[in-house]
């Protein structure tokens, strides 16, 4: 088994901030818009370095999305910043018409996704955003797993021509992917080779999947681990190859099972290689207040839940 080391817990939103800071220096067409959450989104450095390219729109997300669409006309690459809830559900029609249908090169950068937002509770913990965004034609949907990967993804989406939804979070989590690694949109990352079951995870659940694989290894079960940072376009080929090899899969995500990564994987498998699949995801529910760890445990979004699901999937082979 490959060993992955946590180099020190960091929040993925800080990875976004670091990426945006670097982009500010390397790409003068990058502009940033924020709806009164500059500190929470870690956009302070960009604002400090490039005040003329930073646009504080106030608590007015609909206007922010429309402005971002308009700013692309003339060659700018707008990055919008607010919480995932206010980046999607609140502004769905603005994104749909002015950005997605209009084919605008806007990067919707969404922090505090999922239950790990914590104590603020369900009003702020969106578990439906991946589904909302992946349903929009032409929208690229990315959910990164750690600080390093979020930074790399931020840099990569600036080079991609078209609308992108980049989802990340608030809590400090294990930072284990390569520093300054490459980020290929739409390409799964093979973290572990295995033969009995494939664990397909996104976002904060990727580290949990690695922990689960270790635990399973201890019990004599060989688990393959795929890090799916890009939910759309999905890396069909890697998923099918893995399913053919191991014969069953577990998907894991901090999102409702309806509309999430799991459903995207299920569609690919149903069409091309029907395979037993178990879902680690929230069960069509809202979140609640609590610490991130408490919530991940309560909603069954951890290594233990993945191990259990893996055994179930294997039994269904």
């Amino acid at each position: 088994m490959k060993k992955y080391t946590d180099t020190g817990k960091k929040d993925t939103r800080s990875g976004f901030g670091a990426g945006l800071t670097a982009l500010g220096k390397s790409n003068e067409n990058v502009v940033a818009l924020c709806a009164d959450l500059t500190g929470s989104l870690k956009m302070d450095a960009f604002k400090e370095n490039h005040p003329e390219r930073f646009f504080q729109v106030g608590i007015a997300e609909a206007n922010m999305m429309g402005m971002a669409a308009g700013m692309t006309i003339g060659g700018k690459i707008p990055f919008t910043g607010t919480f995932a809830n206010f980046s999607t559900g609140r502004v769905y029609d603005q994104i749909r018409q002015s950005i997605a249908y209009s084919g605008k090169n806007v990067k919707i950068c969404a922090s505090h996704a999922g239950v790990t937002l914590g104590e603020d509770g369900a009003t702020h913990q969106i578990l439906e955003d991946i589904g909302l965004m992946k349903m929009l034609p032409g929208m690229t949907v990315i959910n990164t797993c750690d600080y390093n990967q979020t930074k790399a993804a931020t840099l990569a989406i600036a080079e991609h021509d078209g609308p992108v939804y980049l989802r990340f979070g608030r809590p400090k989590v294990a930072n284990f992917t390569q520093e300054d690694g490459t980020f290929e949109i739409g390409k799964a990352v093979h973290l572990q080779e295995g033969s009995d079951v494939t664990l397909i995870a996104t976002g904060h659940l990727v580290w949990e999947a690695l922990q689960a694989a270790e635990q399973l290894h201890g019990e004599g079960i060989s688990a393959e681990v795929l890090n799916i940072h890009t939910i759309k376009p999905l890396d069909d080929a890697s998923i099918i190859a893995a399913a053919k090899k191991t014969g069953c899969v577990v998907t894991a995500e901090e999102h409702n099972y309806l509309g999430g990564l799991g459903e995207s994987v299920a569609r690919v498998l149903a069409l091309q290689h029907p395979t037993p699949q178990e879902f680690v995801a929230t069960d069509d529910t809202f979140g609640e207040s609590g610490t991130p760890d408490e919530l991940m445990d309560k909603y069954g979004l951890n290594a233990e839940a993945i191990v259990k699901a893996a055994k179930k999937a294997i039994a269904r082979k």
Binding site: G66, A69, G75, K76, S98
Partner: peptide
């Protein structure tokens, strides 16, 4: 949605 888009385009004109 039009005024927002127009404002965005106006900001880009200024930047350019």
């Amino acid at each position: 949605q039009g005024i927002s888009v127009a404002i965005g385009a106006a900001e880009t004109k200024k930047l350019n």
